[in-house]
Structure formats: structure tokens, C-alpha cells
């Protein structure tokens, strides 16, 4: 093994992480014979440790773990029941489902929207920075258009408030437009817009779906294949005030 080959192998070798295979062993033996290679390898290891330490200090967003745990359930355990038992179970479940669905129809689906509401409210609770700050709704809309963010319309009563700026978020791979407005007493109102593909259960023309997240109340509805959601601190009446239908 020559020095170049040894360097290539040792460059990707981390003691304790990578296995000591014969190539690594041969490369390490080469360092014992070649002081220059040994010096290079020691510096290489120190460089790797320094970069790894920096990368290990990159923090995750506050609340990320909580959001993951709050929204997801563990995978269902594989069962070893017989086919007969499975079929009987499925039949019973189907019967139950039809009964339950008939009881609650035509209520809007709650779980996916409430997940969306919880996740978006968790973002605004974190008090993160806005991508673009402006008190001019026209400038905000121009900025969003340049970013090819979802098309949006702003309900008149929200548009009457002073805008603060906007931010682009992500939900299940879809870009979410967030526009923030200032209400009275330094409270805020938030408008979220996302493509309906992110929440396919939401039906066009259905009444708004309300979901409470802590002291926040959200109202979501579909318009032109986009899901709009308003979030304000307060009760149902507080958010209803800003709906287009109000």
C-alpha cells in the first residue's frame, strides 16, 4: 500500500466508529513506518473531531421533539392472529365505523386539521422571526409572489388590521404562507394558507372547522383549492370575527 492509498482509507476512518478491516489495518501500519503520514493522520483526526464537535452543537428548533411526539403514534405491532380472527375483526370494525359515521355525519374531519392547527400554532408560539417584515400588505403580497408562495386572499377584516410581515413554513412537504397582523392590545392575528393537497380531507364549501390549541383558537376553511386558517388568541367568537363570512 502506498502513501496515497493509505491517506484515502484513513481520511474516511474514525476509530471506534468504522470497523478495523484489513485495509484500515494496513493503512495504520503504514503510519508506523511513515512519520509524515503519521503526522498527517493525527492532524486529520483532530480536524475531524473539531468539525464533528461543531456539527454536534447545532441545536434543533425548540419544541421539535414535543411536536413529533404529540402528533405521531408508534407503529402498530404486527399481529400473529389467524386469518379468521382478522376477518371477523375487520367485519366488526366496518360495522362499527358505519354506525359511528352515520351518527356524526356531516361533521368535518377533525384530526388532520387539528394536527395542522397544533403545528402552525406551535410555530407562532415559538415567536420566531418573520422572513419579511412590512406594514404594507401590498409589499408583503409582492414578496410572496416572488417566492411563488400559495396564492392568497386576505379576508377583509384581517386586511383592515396593520400587517407585520410574513414567513414561509412547511407542512407535509407543502409550503405554508403565514401573514401576521397586529390586533388591539398588542395581540396578533395570523393567516395561514396552504395547498389543499396538504389537507385533502378538507371539503370546499364546508363550514369553517374550529380547533382550539391552548389559549389559541383557529378556524380553517377551503377556498379555490387552498386551505385558509386564521389563528387568534381568544375564544371562538374572537376568530369568527375575522372570517370572510362574518
Amino acid at each position: 500500500m502506498n502513501e496515497q492509498e493509505a491517506r484515502l482509507i484513513l481520511q474516511a476512518y474514525r476509530p471506534g466508529v468504522d470497523p478495523d478491516d484489513p485495509d484500515v489495518a494496513a493503512a495504520l501500519e503504514e503510519t508506523a513506518r511513515n512519520p509524515e503520514l503519521a503526522r498527517w493522520f493525527a492532524e486529520e483526526q483532530a480536524f475531524d473531531r473539531a468539525i464533528a464537535a461543531h456539527l454536534g452543537n447545532v441545536p434543533a428548533p425548540f419544541g421539535l421533539k414535543t411536536r413529533i411526539l404529540a402528533q405521531l403514534a408508534p407503529p402498530a405491532a404486527p399481529h400473529r392472529w389467524s386469518w379468521a380472527v382478522k376477518l371477523a375483526g375487520v367485519a366488526a370494525l366496518l360495522f362499527l365505523l358505519t354506525q359511528v359515521v352515520s351518527l356524526f355525519r356531516p361533521a368535518a374531519p377533525k384530526a388532520p386539521v387539528s394536527n395542522y392547527a397544533r403545528e402552525m400554532v406551535s410555530f407562532i408560539r415559538l415567536g420566531g422571526t418573520l422572513d419579511m417584515q412590512s406594514d404594507d400588505l401590498g409589499q408583503i403580497e409582492e414578496w410572496l409572489s416572488k417566492k411563488e408562495a400559495p396564492p392568497r386572499f386576505v379576508p377583509p377584516r384581517l386586511a383592515a388590521l396593520q400587517p407585520l410581515g410574513c414567513r414561509l413554513l412547511s407542512f407535509r412537504g407543502q409550503t405554508v404562507t403565514l401573514i401576521c397582523f397586529k390586533r388591539d392590545n398588542d395581540r396578533l392575528a395570523h393567516l395561514f394558507v396552504v395547498d389543499r393537497a396538504a389537507l385533502p380531507q378538507m371539503k370546499s364549501g364546508a363550514p369553517p372547522v374550529f380547533a382550539g390549541v391552548g389559549d389559541w383558537m383557529t378556524a380553517s376553511w377551503v377556498e379555490n383549492d387552498r386551505v385558509y386558517m386564521i389563528a387568534v388568541q381568544g375564544d371562538r367568537a374572537a376568530v369568527q370575527h375575522y372570517l370572510p363570512s362574518a
Binding site: 411536536r67 405521531l72 407535509r172 412537504g173
Partner: peptide
């Protein structure tokens, strides 16, 4: 995007990990 990718990964695990 990174936070969403991380969440989506655990979402995939919850639905397909078994």
C-alpha cells in the same frame, strides 16, 4: 424545511416502520 423533514421521517416510521 429541516424540522418538517424530521417530522415527516417519524410520520413515515409511524405508518410504515412495522
Amino acid at each position: 424545511d429541516a424540522a418538517d423533514l424530521t417530522q415527516q421521517t417519524f410520520f413515515l416510521w409511524a405508518s410504515k416502520g412495522h
